[in-house]
Design a protein around this nucleic acid. Structure first.
Lengths: 230, 230
DNA sequence: TGCCGCAGTTGATCGAAATCAACTCTGGCC
DNA sequence: GGCCAGAGTTGATTTCGATCAACTGCGGCA
Protein backbone atom coordinates (compact mmCIF):
# COMPACT_ATOMS: atom_id res chain seq x y z
CA UNK A 1 0.00 0.00 0.00
CA UNK A 2 2.98 2.17 0.63
CA UNK A 3 5.69 1.72 -1.90
CA UNK A 4 3.09 1.26 -4.60
CA UNK A 5 2.43 4.95 -4.48
CA UNK A 6 4.50 7.29 -6.56
CA UNK A 7 7.64 8.10 -4.74
CA UNK A 8 9.33 11.08 -6.25
CA UNK A 9 11.69 13.87 -5.67
CA UNK A 10 9.68 17.01 -5.25
CA UNK A 11 8.55 19.02 -8.19
CA UNK A 12 8.71 22.77 -7.99
CA UNK A 13 5.07 23.21 -7.03
CA UNK A 14 5.57 20.89 -4.08
CA UNK A 15 8.79 22.63 -3.15
CA UNK A 16 6.86 25.86 -3.04
CA UNK A 17 4.18 24.41 -0.82
CA UNK A 18 6.82 23.04 1.50
CA UNK A 19 8.76 26.30 1.54
CA UNK A 20 5.53 28.17 2.21
CA UNK A 21 4.69 26.35 5.44
CA UNK A 22 4.81 28.71 8.40
CA UNK A 23 7.63 26.96 10.15
CA UNK A 24 9.69 26.09 7.13
CA UNK A 25 9.51 29.74 6.24
CA UNK A 26 11.61 30.35 9.32
CA UNK A 27 14.45 28.32 7.85
CA UNK A 28 17.25 30.00 5.98
CA UNK A 29 17.98 29.15 2.36
CA UNK A 30 20.68 26.55 3.11
CA UNK A 31 18.58 24.78 5.74
CA UNK A 32 15.62 24.66 3.41
CA UNK A 33 17.90 23.29 0.73
CA UNK A 34 19.08 20.51 3.03
CA UNK A 35 15.54 19.62 3.97
CA UNK A 36 14.30 19.41 0.40
CA UNK A 37 17.29 17.24 -0.50
CA UNK A 38 16.19 14.49 1.86
CA UNK A 39 12.47 14.84 1.17
CA UNK A 40 10.40 12.52 -0.97
CA UNK A 41 6.82 13.15 -1.98
CA UNK A 42 4.22 10.48 -1.56
CA UNK A 43 0.61 10.39 -2.59
CA UNK A 44 -2.22 8.59 -0.79
CA UNK A 45 -5.88 8.01 -1.39
CA UNK A 46 -8.65 8.49 1.16
CA UNK A 47 -8.53 5.86 3.92
CA UNK A 48 -5.03 4.68 3.05
CA UNK A 49 -3.02 3.84 6.12
CA UNK A 50 0.38 5.52 6.22
CA UNK A 51 1.46 3.66 9.34
CA UNK A 52 0.06 1.73 12.27
CA UNK A 53 0.59 2.19 15.96
CA UNK A 54 3.53 0.03 16.91
CA UNK A 55 5.12 0.05 13.47
CA UNK A 56 8.81 0.91 13.51
CA UNK A 57 9.00 4.65 13.05
CA UNK A 58 10.78 5.52 9.84
CA UNK A 59 9.55 8.90 8.72
CA UNK A 60 8.81 12.41 9.78
CA UNK A 61 6.04 13.99 7.69
CA UNK A 62 4.90 17.31 6.35
CA UNK A 63 1.45 17.45 4.79
CA UNK A 64 1.43 19.25 1.45
CA UNK A 65 -2.20 18.88 0.39
CA UNK A 66 -5.23 17.27 2.02
CA UNK A 67 -5.73 16.13 5.59
CA UNK A 68 -4.22 13.34 7.64
CA UNK A 69 -5.59 11.75 10.83
CA UNK A 70 -3.52 10.57 13.75
CA UNK A 71 -5.61 8.28 15.91
CA UNK A 72 -5.63 5.50 18.48
CA UNK A 73 -7.71 2.35 18.55
CA UNK A 74 -9.28 0.99 21.70
CA UNK A 75 -9.40 -2.74 22.33
CA UNK A 76 -13.00 -2.87 21.19
CA UNK A 77 -12.22 -1.10 17.94
CA UNK A 78 -13.37 2.43 18.61
CA UNK A 79 -11.16 5.21 17.24
CA UNK A 80 -10.06 8.42 18.91
CA UNK A 81 -8.45 11.15 16.85
CA UNK A 82 -5.42 12.68 18.45
CA UNK A 83 -4.69 15.22 15.78
CA UNK A 84 -5.81 16.28 12.32
CA UNK A 85 -2.97 17.63 10.18
CA UNK A 86 -3.56 19.87 7.21
CA UNK A 87 -1.41 21.52 4.56
CA UNK A 88 1.83 22.84 5.99
CA UNK A 89 1.56 20.88 9.21
CA UNK A 90 4.11 18.36 10.36
CA UNK A 91 3.95 15.29 12.55
CA UNK A 92 6.32 12.71 13.92
CA UNK A 93 8.79 15.17 15.43
CA UNK A 94 8.72 13.43 18.76
CA UNK A 95 9.95 10.21 17.16
CA UNK A 96 13.28 11.86 16.47
CA UNK A 97 14.10 11.68 20.14
CA UNK A 98 12.02 8.85 21.43
CA UNK A 99 11.25 5.19 21.09
CA UNK A 100 11.39 3.26 17.92
CA UNK A 101 7.69 2.96 17.07
CA UNK A 102 4.75 5.09 16.01
CA UNK A 103 2.44 5.93 18.88
CA UNK A 104 -0.69 6.16 16.74
CA UNK A 105 -2.25 5.10 13.49
CA UNK A 106 -1.76 7.47 10.57
CA UNK A 107 -4.44 7.62 7.92
CA UNK A 108 -5.21 9.78 4.90
CA UNK A 109 -8.60 11.38 5.54
CA UNK A 110 -8.88 12.17 1.85
CA UNK A 111 -6.60 12.33 -1.18
CA UNK A 112 -3.32 13.55 0.21
CA UNK A 113 0.21 14.49 -0.74
CA UNK A 114 2.87 14.46 1.94
CA UNK A 115 6.57 15.12 2.04
CA UNK A 116 8.39 12.63 4.15
CA UNK A 117 11.84 12.61 5.66
CA UNK A 118 13.75 9.60 6.91
CA UNK A 119 14.11 10.03 10.65
CA UNK A 120 17.73 8.94 10.64
CA UNK A 121 18.69 11.46 7.99
CA UNK A 122 16.71 14.21 9.63
CA UNK A 123 18.29 13.44 12.99
CA UNK A 124 21.67 13.91 11.41
CA UNK A 125 20.60 17.16 9.77
CA UNK A 126 19.23 18.49 13.03
CA UNK A 127 22.51 17.71 14.73
CA UNK A 128 24.45 19.64 12.14
CA UNK A 129 22.13 22.51 11.45
CA UNK A 130 21.03 24.77 14.24
CA UNK A 131 18.15 26.21 12.21
CA UNK A 132 16.65 22.82 11.60
CA UNK A 133 16.95 21.86 15.24
CA UNK A 134 15.19 25.05 16.17
CA UNK A 135 12.47 24.38 13.63
CA UNK A 136 11.82 21.00 15.18
CA UNK A 137 11.79 22.44 18.68
CA UNK A 138 9.32 25.08 17.68
CA UNK A 139 6.95 22.70 16.08
CA UNK A 140 7.09 20.32 19.04
CA UNK A 141 6.42 23.23 21.36
CA UNK A 142 3.50 24.31 19.20
CA UNK A 143 2.02 20.81 19.18
CA UNK A 144 2.46 20.61 22.90
CA UNK A 145 0.46 23.72 23.64
CA UNK A 146 -2.16 22.72 21.10
CA UNK A 147 -2.71 19.38 22.67
CA UNK A 148 -2.72 20.84 26.18
CA UNK A 149 -5.54 23.08 24.98
CA UNK A 150 -7.21 19.98 23.65
CA UNK A 151 -7.09 18.20 27.02
CA UNK A 152 -8.35 21.26 28.86
CA UNK A 153 -11.15 21.82 26.35
CA UNK A 154 -12.23 18.19 26.44
CA UNK A 155 -12.46 18.37 30.20
CA UNK A 156 -14.05 21.78 30.60
CA UNK A 157 -16.25 22.39 27.62
CA UNK A 158 -19.45 20.95 26.23
CA UNK A 159 -19.84 19.99 22.59
CA UNK A 160 -21.34 23.33 21.49
CA UNK A 161 -18.59 25.19 23.34
CA UNK A 162 -15.86 23.18 21.66
CA UNK A 163 -17.46 23.76 18.30
CA UNK A 164 -17.82 27.49 18.95
CA UNK A 165 -14.17 27.60 19.95
CA UNK A 166 -13.18 25.87 16.75
CA UNK A 167 -15.25 28.24 14.63
CA UNK A 168 -13.77 31.24 16.40
CA UNK A 169 -10.23 30.08 15.70
CA UNK A 170 -11.19 29.79 12.03
CA UNK A 171 -12.59 33.33 11.90
CA UNK A 172 -10.56 36.30 10.79
CA UNK A 173 -9.77 38.42 13.83
CA UNK A 174 -11.84 41.44 14.80
CA UNK A 175 -14.76 40.81 12.57
CA UNK A 176 -18.33 41.05 13.79
CA UNK A 177 -19.58 38.46 11.32
CA UNK A 178 -17.88 35.86 9.20
CA UNK A 179 -18.37 33.07 6.75
CA UNK A 180 -16.25 29.97 7.00
CA UNK A 181 -15.79 27.08 4.63
CA UNK A 182 -14.93 23.89 6.51
CA UNK A 183 -11.73 22.50 5.01
CA UNK A 184 -12.82 18.88 5.48
CA UNK A 185 -15.77 16.59 6.13
CA UNK A 186 -17.91 17.17 9.18
CA UNK A 187 -17.20 13.65 10.35
CA UNK A 188 -13.53 14.56 10.49
CA UNK A 189 -14.30 17.71 12.45
CA UNK A 190 -16.35 15.61 14.83
CA UNK A 191 -13.34 13.37 15.46
CA UNK A 192 -11.06 16.35 15.92
CA UNK A 193 -13.40 17.73 18.57
CA UNK A 194 -13.71 14.34 20.24
CA UNK A 195 -17.38 13.94 19.30
CA UNK A 196 -19.53 11.43 17.49
CA UNK A 197 -20.82 12.81 14.18
CA UNK A 198 -24.35 12.96 15.60
CA UNK A 199 -23.12 15.06 18.49
CA UNK A 200 -21.45 17.50 16.12
CA UNK A 201 -24.66 17.80 14.18
CA UNK A 202 -26.56 18.57 17.36
CA UNK A 203 -23.91 21.04 18.42
CA UNK A 204 -24.38 22.90 15.14
CA UNK A 205 -28.11 23.05 15.61
CA UNK A 206 -27.73 24.28 19.16
CA UNK A 207 -25.55 27.10 17.80
CA UNK A 208 -28.40 28.22 15.55
CA UNK A 209 -29.80 30.23 18.43
CA UNK A 210 -26.46 32.05 18.54
CA UNK A 211 -26.81 33.06 14.91
CA UNK A 212 -24.84 30.32 13.22
CA UNK A 213 -26.17 29.09 9.88
CA UNK A 214 -24.97 25.93 8.21
CA UNK A 215 -25.28 25.05 4.54
CA UNK A 216 -23.12 22.05 3.75
CA UNK A 217 -19.56 23.02 4.52
CA UNK A 218 -20.37 26.69 4.50
CA UNK A 219 -20.86 28.23 7.94
CA UNK A 220 -22.25 31.71 8.41
CA UNK A 221 -21.70 33.51 11.69
CA UNK A 222 -23.88 36.53 12.30
CA UNK A 223 -22.39 37.68 15.55
CA UNK A 224 -18.90 36.60 16.47
CA UNK A 225 -19.27 38.22 19.87
CA UNK A 226 -22.32 36.10 20.67
CA UNK A 227 -20.36 32.97 19.80
CA UNK A 228 -17.69 33.95 22.31
CA UNK A 229 -20.33 33.97 25.04
CA UNK A 230 -21.28 30.32 24.50
CA UNK B 1 3.70 35.15 47.61
CA UNK B 2 6.65 34.50 45.39
CA UNK B 3 9.75 36.37 46.40
CA UNK B 4 8.84 35.94 50.03
CA UNK B 5 9.89 32.35 49.78
CA UNK B 6 13.46 31.42 50.42
CA UNK B 7 15.36 31.85 47.25
CA UNK B 8 18.68 30.12 47.44
CA UNK B 9 21.44 28.60 45.48
CA UNK B 10 21.08 24.88 45.68
CA UNK B 11 22.48 22.94 48.55
CA UNK B 12 24.18 19.66 47.85
CA UNK B 13 21.15 17.52 48.65
CA UNK B 14 19.13 19.48 46.13
CA UNK B 15 21.91 19.26 43.59
CA UNK B 16 21.83 15.51 43.98
CA UNK B 17 18.09 15.35 43.45
CA UNK B 18 18.44 17.49 40.35
CA UNK B 19 21.35 15.44 39.03
CA UNK B 20 19.39 12.27 39.70
CA UNK B 21 16.45 13.14 37.49
CA UNK B 22 16.21 10.76 34.57
CA UNK B 23 16.76 13.33 31.92
CA UNK B 24 19.37 15.39 33.73
CA UNK B 25 21.27 12.18 34.17
CA UNK B 26 21.72 12.21 30.41
CA UNK B 27 23.68 15.44 30.62
CA UNK B 28 27.45 15.43 30.75
CA UNK B 29 29.31 16.94 33.70
CA UNK B 30 29.85 20.35 32.10
CA UNK B 31 26.24 20.69 30.98
CA UNK B 32 25.02 19.74 34.42
CA UNK B 33 27.40 22.28 35.87
CA UNK B 34 25.99 25.00 33.64
CA UNK B 35 22.45 24.10 34.57
CA UNK B 36 23.08 24.17 38.30
CA UNK B 37 24.81 27.51 37.96
CA UNK B 38 21.66 29.21 36.72
CA UNK B 39 19.28 27.32 39.02
CA UNK B 40 17.67 28.70 42.14
CA UNK B 41 15.69 26.69 44.64
CA UNK B 42 12.30 27.86 45.79
CA UNK B 43 9.96 26.48 48.38
CA UNK B 44 6.17 26.59 48.32
CA UNK B 45 3.37 25.54 50.62
CA UNK B 46 0.29 23.59 49.62
CA UNK B 47 -2.06 25.63 47.43
CA UNK B 48 0.49 28.35 46.72
CA UNK B 49 0.23 29.64 43.20
CA UNK B 50 3.53 29.65 41.32
CA UNK B 51 2.08 31.42 38.31
CA UNK B 52 -1.22 32.14 36.62
CA UNK B 53 -2.32 31.55 33.08
CA UNK B 54 -1.47 34.67 31.12
CA UNK B 55 1.37 35.77 33.40
CA UNK B 56 4.53 36.63 31.53
CA UNK B 57 6.56 33.45 31.43
CA UNK B 58 9.80 33.84 33.32
CA UNK B 59 10.88 30.42 34.46
CA UNK B 60 11.38 26.86 33.45
CA UNK B 61 10.93 24.47 36.39
CA UNK B 62 12.17 21.16 37.71
CA UNK B 63 10.32 19.69 40.68
CA UNK B 64 12.66 18.48 43.41
CA UNK B 65 10.20 17.32 46.07
CA UNK B 66 6.41 17.22 46.23
CA UNK B 67 3.86 17.58 43.46
CA UNK B 68 2.82 20.50 41.30
CA UNK B 69 -0.42 20.90 39.34
CA UNK B 70 -0.70 22.53 35.94
CA UNK B 71 -4.33 23.40 35.29
CA UNK B 72 -6.77 25.53 33.36
CA UNK B 73 -9.79 27.41 34.63
CA UNK B 74 -13.07 27.56 32.76
CA UNK B 75 -15.09 30.76 32.67
CA UNK B 76 -17.38 29.42 35.37
CA UNK B 77 -14.49 28.57 37.66
CA UNK B 78 -14.11 24.83 37.22
CA UNK B 79 -10.56 23.50 37.06
CA UNK B 80 -9.06 20.93 34.71
CA UNK B 81 -5.67 19.46 35.45
CA UNK B 82 -3.42 19.28 32.44
CA UNK B 83 -0.49 17.64 34.16
CA UNK B 84 0.75 16.63 37.58
CA UNK B 85 4.51 16.96 37.98
CA UNK B 86 6.44 15.02 40.60
CA UNK B 87 10.05 14.83 41.74
CA UNK B 88 12.46 14.93 38.82
CA UNK B 89 9.88 16.16 36.34
CA UNK B 90 10.15 19.41 34.45
CA UNK B 91 7.66 21.81 32.96
CA UNK B 92 7.68 25.00 30.93
CA UNK B 93 9.98 23.73 28.18
CA UNK B 94 7.60 24.86 25.49
CA UNK B 95 7.85 28.44 26.72
CA UNK B 96 11.45 28.55 25.58
CA UNK B 97 10.29 28.62 22.00
CA UNK B 98 6.84 30.09 22.18
CA UNK B 99 4.81 33.04 23.24
CA UNK B 100 5.51 35.18 26.21
CA UNK B 101 2.93 33.90 28.69
CA UNK B 102 2.13 30.82 30.76
CA UNK B 103 -0.59 28.72 29.21
CA UNK B 104 -1.90 27.37 32.51
CA UNK B 105 -2.04 27.99 36.22
CA UNK B 106 0.74 26.45 38.27
CA UNK B 107 -0.01 25.43 41.84
CA UNK B 108 1.76 23.54 44.58
CA UNK B 109 -0.42 20.53 45.41
CA UNK B 110 1.44 20.14 48.70
CA UNK B 111 4.66 21.37 50.27
CA UNK B 112 7.05 21.58 47.38
CA UNK B 113 10.62 22.42 46.45
CA UNK B 114 11.39 23.32 42.87
CA UNK B 115 14.48 24.36 40.96
CA UNK B 116 13.79 27.14 38.56
CA UNK B 117 15.72 28.50 35.65
CA UNK B 118 15.26 31.87 33.99
CA UNK B 119 13.99 31.22 30.50
CA UNK B 120 16.28 33.80 28.96
CA UNK B 121 19.37 32.29 30.55
CA UNK B 122 18.32 28.78 29.69
CA UNK B 123 17.61 29.77 26.10
CA UNK B 124 21.15 31.05 25.87
CA UNK B 125 22.55 27.85 27.42
CA UNK B 126 20.57 25.70 25.04
CA UNK B 127 21.92 27.66 22.10
CA UNK B 128 25.47 27.12 23.24
CA UNK B 129 25.30 23.61 24.59
CA UNK B 130 24.16 20.78 22.38
CA UNK B 131 23.55 18.46 25.34
CA UNK B 132 21.18 20.89 26.97
CA UNK B 133 19.28 21.45 23.74
CA UNK B 134 18.93 17.72 23.38
CA UNK B 135 17.74 17.40 26.97
CA UNK B 136 15.01 19.92 26.31
CA UNK B 137 14.01 18.23 23.08
CA UNK B 138 13.75 14.89 24.79
CA UNK B 139 11.63 16.14 27.60
CA UNK B 140 9.31 17.98 25.22
CA UNK B 141 9.01 14.83 23.14
CA UNK B 142 8.25 12.81 26.28
CA UNK B 143 5.58 15.28 27.39
CA UNK B 144 4.09 15.22 23.94
CA UNK B 145 3.60 11.47 23.86
CA UNK B 146 2.32 11.49 27.43
CA UNK B 147 -0.30 14.03 26.70
CA UNK B 148 -1.28 12.33 23.46
CA UNK B 149 -1.91 9.23 25.55
CA UNK B 150 -3.95 11.38 27.86
CA UNK B 151 -6.21 12.63 25.05
CA UNK B 152 -6.66 9.14 23.66
CA UNK B 153 -7.40 7.69 27.09
CA UNK B 154 -9.87 10.43 27.94
CA UNK B 155 -11.72 9.74 24.72
CA UNK B 156 -11.61 5.96 24.71
CA UNK B 157 -11.65 4.78 28.30
CA UNK B 158 -14.08 4.78 31.17
CA UNK B 159 -13.13 5.88 34.66
CA UNK B 160 -12.27 2.38 35.92
CA UNK B 161 -10.18 1.75 32.81
CA UNK B 162 -8.23 4.94 33.25
CA UNK B 163 -7.61 4.10 36.88
CA UNK B 164 -6.54 0.57 36.01
CA UNK B 165 -4.16 1.97 33.44
CA UNK B 166 -2.67 4.33 36.00
CA UNK B 167 -2.22 1.55 38.52
CA UNK B 168 -0.58 -0.66 35.93
CA UNK B 169 1.92 2.03 35.03
CA UNK B 170 2.78 2.29 38.72
CA UNK B 171 3.35 -1.46 39.03
CA UNK B 172 6.75 -3.05 38.72
CA UNK B 173 6.89 -4.92 35.41
CA UNK B 174 6.20 -8.64 35.16
CA UNK B 175 4.72 -9.13 38.57
CA UNK B 176 1.53 -11.08 39.13
CA UNK B 177 0.58 -9.08 42.19
CA UNK B 178 1.69 -5.77 43.58
CA UNK B 179 1.22 -3.23 46.30
CA UNK B 180 1.34 0.44 45.47
CA UNK B 181 1.50 3.49 47.67
CA UNK B 182 -0.14 6.49 46.01
CA UNK B 183 2.37 9.33 46.02
CA UNK B 184 -0.30 11.99 46.57
CA UNK B 185 -3.87 12.62 47.64
CA UNK B 186 -6.66 10.81 45.89
CA UNK B 187 -8.22 14.10 44.95
CA UNK B 188 -5.08 14.92 43.00
CA UNK B 189 -5.17 11.56 41.27
CA UNK B 190 -8.79 12.23 40.37
CA UNK B 191 -7.78 15.48 38.70
CA UNK B 192 -4.92 13.80 36.88
CA UNK B 193 -7.33 11.23 35.46
CA UNK B 194 -9.85 13.90 34.56
CA UNK B 195 -12.40 12.74 37.15
CA UNK B 196 -14.32 14.20 40.03
CA UNK B 197 -13.15 12.78 43.38
CA UNK B 198 -16.44 10.90 43.74
CA UNK B 199 -15.92 9.25 40.37
CA UNK B 200 -12.44 8.11 41.39
CA UNK B 201 -13.86 6.64 44.56
CA UNK B 202 -16.44 4.72 42.56
CA UNK B 203 -13.81 3.60 40.09
CA UNK B 204 -11.81 2.13 42.97
CA UNK B 205 -14.80 0.27 44.27
CA UNK B 206 -15.62 -1.07 40.83
CA UNK B 207 -12.06 -2.43 40.66
CA UNK B 208 -12.68 -4.44 43.82
CA UNK B 209 -14.22 -7.18 41.70
CA UNK B 210 -10.90 -7.30 39.81
CA UNK B 211 -9.03 -7.94 43.03
CA UNK B 212 -7.96 -4.41 43.96
CA UNK B 213 -7.96 -3.55 47.65
CA UNK B 214 -7.68 -0.01 48.95
CA UNK B 215 -6.60 1.05 52.42
CA UNK B 216 -5.94 4.76 52.48
CA UNK B 217 -3.14 5.42 50.02
CA UNK B 218 -2.11 1.79 49.96
CA UNK B 219 -3.40 -0.18 46.98
CA UNK B 220 -3.12 -3.96 46.80
CA UNK B 221 -3.42 -5.68 43.45
CA UNK B 222 -4.03 -9.40 43.56
CA UNK B 223 -3.89 -10.11 39.88
CA UNK B 224 -2.14 -7.72 37.58
CA UNK B 225 -3.29 -9.70 34.57
CA UNK B 226 -6.94 -9.28 35.55
CA UNK B 227 -6.43 -5.55 35.78
CA UNK B 228 -5.11 -5.49 32.21
CA UNK B 229 -8.40 -7.01 31.04
CA UNK B 230 -10.50 -4.15 32.41
C1' DT C 1 -10.76 11.49 76.07
C1' DG C 2 -13.52 14.03 73.23
C1' DC C 3 -13.79 17.41 69.61
C1' DC C 4 -12.80 19.46 65.28
C1' DG C 5 -11.76 19.58 60.45
C1' DC C 6 -10.86 17.60 56.32
C1' DA C 7 -10.35 13.69 52.95
C1' DG C 8 -12.88 10.41 51.25
C1' DT C 9 -17.16 7.66 50.52
C1' DT C 10 -21.92 6.68 49.47
C1' DG C 11 -26.43 7.72 47.74
C1' DA C 12 -29.74 10.15 44.66
C1' DT C 13 -30.41 12.84 40.84
C1' DC C 14 -29.32 15.20 36.65
C1' DG C 15 -27.30 16.17 32.24
C1' DA C 16 -24.34 15.45 28.32
C1' DA C 17 -23.11 12.73 24.84
C1' DA C 18 -22.76 7.81 22.90
C1' DT C 19 -25.31 4.56 20.63
C1' DC C 20 -28.67 2.55 17.61
C1' DA C 21 -31.97 3.14 14.09
C1' DA C 22 -34.49 5.42 10.67
C1' DC C 23 -34.61 8.93 7.58
C1' DT C 24 -33.00 12.87 4.28
C1' DC C 25 -30.03 15.19 1.56
C1' DT C 26 -26.34 15.63 -1.77
C1' DG C 27 -23.24 14.88 -5.46
C1' DG C 28 -21.51 11.78 -8.87
C1' DC C 29 -22.61 8.86 -12.55
C1' DC C 30 -25.03 6.27 -16.05
C1' DG D 1 -33.42 12.94 -15.66
C1' DG D 2 -33.13 9.25 -12.41
C1' DC D 3 -30.42 6.29 -9.41
C1' DC D 4 -27.27 5.18 -5.96
C1' DA D 5 -23.90 5.48 -2.20
C1' DG D 6 -22.23 7.89 1.28
C1' DA D 7 -22.57 11.96 4.36
C1' DG D 8 -25.27 14.07 7.44
C1' DT D 9 -29.47 14.67 10.35
C1' DT D 10 -33.05 13.54 13.62
C1' DG D 11 -35.24 10.83 17.16
C1' DA D 12 -35.31 7.41 21.09
C1' DT D 13 -32.82 5.27 24.44
C1' DT D 14 -28.97 4.28 27.40
C1' DT D 15 -24.81 5.01 29.78
C1' DC D 16 -21.42 7.42 32.14
C1' DG D 17 -19.88 10.66 35.06
C1' DA D 18 -20.92 15.37 37.31
C1' DT D 19 -23.20 17.37 40.91
C1' DC D 20 -25.32 17.97 45.34
C1' DA D 21 -25.99 16.33 49.84
C1' DA D 22 -25.35 13.49 53.71
C1' DC D 23 -22.43 10.68 56.09
C1' DT D 24 -17.91 8.17 57.68
C1' DG D 25 -13.46 7.73 59.28
C1' DC D 26 -9.15 9.38 60.58
C1' DG D 27 -5.45 12.50 62.39
C1' DG D 28 -4.27 16.33 65.14
C1' DC D 29 -4.89 18.68 69.26
C1' DA D 30 -6.49 20.65 73.50
Amino acid sequence: MDEMNKRLKMNSREKNILAGTPLMAALGKPALQHMTEIATVVHFEARDILAREGDPAEYFYCVLTGYVRLFRLSRDGREADIRICGPGETFGECLLYLGPAYRYHIQAAETVTVARFELSKLRKLADEDRDIARFIMQSMAAHLVNIMDCVANDRLQTAPQRLAHYLLTSCPQNSTSASIRLPFQKSLLAGKLGLAPEALSRAFSSLKRAGVTVRGRLILINDVGALRQI
